[in-house]
């Protein structure tokens, strides 16, 4: 597990459920801090342990994690570089693993394929066993649709995400100025 991901998960659990849950998870994992660094997200035990503790499906927790990540200002901004509008953002998701790899060379993010079934009906496809990443991406997409001010309907089936965009300019999106990050200090993960 990449330490940055590890820390993001830790912060997410702390932010959402408080120190007590995080402490319980750490305890259940035993020597959690000494886990090998090479595990991919799909066998991330920390999320699975937390899910068991919360009596929630793990995928639901991955989806919450994706949404939480997209709400972190530094990450939100990096995601917004991928497209001027929501549809472009979704279509260019196939670049996301490349972008992630460019920043964190040892991150193992699965390949993403995007197809357009009809206008405004997009399908984001991940490798079959990557349901954790699929859930995470779905949570991220829900938040990013709001961020762009688009009405986006996100549905998950296995390792595929359906994205319907009935209205690309549904509401006022959040501001994205290119220079903003250099003045303001984003909260980083």
């Amino acid at each position: 597990m990449h330490r940055l991901i590890d820390r993001a998960i830790e912060e997410f659990l702390r932010d959402t459920y408080g120190d007590a849950l995080l402490g319980a998870v750490q305890q259940m994992m035993g020597r959690a801090a000494d886990l090998p660094a090479e595990e991919g997200l799909h066998d991330n035990s920390r999320i699975h342990v937390a899910a068991r503790r919360l009596a929630k499906p793990a995928d639901e927790l991955f989806e919450d994690l994706g949404a939480w990540l997209a709400r972190q200002e530094a990450i939100r901004r990096l995601l917004r570089f991928s497209g001027r509008e929501f549809a472009e953002f979704v279509i260019r998701l196939d670049e996301l693993p490349g972008r992630a790899h460019m920043i964190l060379p040892d991150i193992c993010m699965p390949a993403i394929t995007v197809t357009e079934c009809s206008l405004g009906d997009l399908r984001v496809i991940l490798p079959e066993r990557e349901t954790g990443w699929t859930a995470l991406l779905a949570g991220m997409l829900r938040v990013m649709a709001d961020d762009y001010g688009a009405l986006g309907l996100i549905s998950v089936e296995g390792s595929q995400i359906g994205v319907l965009i009935p209205d690309a300019e549904f509401a006022q999106g959040r501001d994205f100025q290119l220079g903003a990050a250099f003045a303001a200090r984003g909260r980083g993960v």
Binding site: I75, R77, F81, R99, M102, L178
Partner: peptide
């Protein structure tokens, strides 16, 4: 370039 610049700063901070 701008993407990398921001990403780099965020990662370095972490």
């Amino acid at each position: 370039l701008l993407f990398l610049y921001e990403a780099n700063r965020a990662v370095l901070g972490e």
